[in-house]
Write a protein that binds this DNA or RNA. Structure first.
Lengths: 161, 161
DNA sequence: CTTAATGCAAATCCTTTGCATGTAG
DNA sequence: CTACATGCAAAGGATTTGCATTAAG
């Protein structure tokens, strides 16, 4: 599998995956490399079977089990996460940073946040429960100032309905 | 199924479910009622099988398929939603205001939490940004105590799977 | 009466595993 | 050489479906 060693080398995730393998005494292999590479090249979420098809498309003869096994490694190494897919499990790249955001339910605006206070909270909870926590998502759904103003105005003007 | 018609009548979700049935020309039935009632009485998320066990505990002889079929109705009617559970799909009431949970990345265990501290944090953020917030999701990903122990042990005996 | 709902078991997915064999280190 | 990785097929689980039968409206 020499096809794109350059791209591999440039992607920090690849390095991280290699480190993960080494740290567990696991080995490199052409099929494994292909699966990982195609998974990385995919932006959104993907099911095991979709990934398998994409892989077979490049190198026929690779077994589904290999895809599943590699996917497990990706999850274990923290480079992938599972997420909802209709009916079947989907996998998506896990970004390093934690994600905090506030979403306006009226206009749909999404604002990315960085909340050190949430880090503290997270630590406290983890401690209390005996967990270790590596990542978090804090999504808040509500209304943005602009939409709140608009609503307030609409209230006055249209007295009732 | 007269056991708790009073409780049923008081829960607005029940009314909504009945409307949903009527709008589709579907029928009432004792088993269906039981499944819905037990689902509603459960606060957190639950798997189809767990729900089945709880149902059988009250009235033995009810089939899993009935539980699955009812669960689908609940989802279709917007009263339930699916969510991640270890390996298997879990269901939870859709109306639940906020969801806080901690998920083990090793065994997939999902623990539902109730975090008043997060409410405070949420309020503070909202205030600062001029938003109102009505709902939140706080997902934390890490490792549970059991898996942490297992890992510590596995450290000695070189890992494979 | 008409037609949906149910229980049961068989059928379908989706995912994991056992095993003989290939292969990286 | 020594494990680990792989393909294949069989095994496992979870969820769905076909069908005869029961029961709601």
């Amino acid at each position: 599998m020499e096809t794109s060693s350059i791209r591999k080398k440039r992607d920090p995730r690849w390095t991280r995956f290699e480190e993960f393998l080494r740290s567990r005494g696991l080995r490199h292999s052409a099929s494994r490399g292909l699966v990982v590479e195609i998974f990385f090249s995919n932006e959104g979420s993907i099911s095991a079977e979709e990934l398998w098809l994409a892989v077979k498309n490049q190198v026929p003869g690779i077994a589904v089990s290999t895809v599943y096994r590699t996917l497990r490694l990706l999850v274990d190494s923290g480079l992938a996460r599972t997420c909802e897919g209709q009916g079947t499990v989907h996998y998506e790249p896990r970004s390093k940073a934690s994600r905090d955001r506030i979403i306006c339910m009226d206009c749909g605006k999404v604002m990315d946040l960085d909340l050190p206070e949430a880090d503290l909270l997270q630590e406290r909870i983890a401690m209390r429960l005996g967990y270790t926590v590596e990542q978090r998502e804090l999504f808040m759904y509500g209304r943005c100032p602009a939409c709140l103003r608009r609503r307030a105005l609409a209230m006055k003007n249209a007295g009732r309905y």
